[in-house]
Amino acid sequence: MSEEREKIFTEDLRKGIFPSKTKGRGINATESMEVEMEERYSGKGGVFDSLPVATGTDGDDQDGQPLKSVEGYIIFVANIQEEVQEPDIRDVFSEWGQIRNVHLNIDRRTGFTKGYALIEYQSKEEAEDAVKNGNGFELAGQKLDVGFAFISSSSSSGPVISVNRSISSASSSYRNKNGGYRGGDRDSKKKYSGKRY
């Protein structure tokens, strides 16, 4: 049973092709995750909140467009030199708009900058400006890699899929046929019960 279960999961995950190398106690665990998964995602918790995609005026409800966060737009800056500090980032990026928030996280092992930053702007124009002009900008000898942090995706605005470890709703029928990797009832109920907001 455990083997079958694992196989179904793995196939599901890899869409038919097994990873050539697998490792770790969890790989063969029958109970650990599977049993608790029910509990972890039971009740209304099966529904994951997400922010509404701005369907709007400028018709940006297509996939891959920048997604608005609660208080603005977040850009993601990568390839930051490790000794760069927050004031340096603010210096560079306030050029293109008023910065609402900066997260410049540090490497827990070395204590230096991890190499990425998240910056919040209030307006989409500011954020777009920062992405356009900041990308490739040289800071402390390294060219910054700048893009939006969040994008809209039509798959996430569809019906809520109950959280099991399937990749997509399309594969759930496959899984049920194979002996109900996870309760089929729960699956179908959950899918339409939650109203997304």
């Binding site: 997400s50 990568a78 969040f150 994008i151």
Partner: peptide, 11 residues
């Protein structure tokens, strides 16, 4: 608390 969001390729 349960949240879901789609992140960009950069992330």
């Amino acid at each position: 608390i349960r949240k879901e969001v789609c992140v960009s390729d950069n992330v």
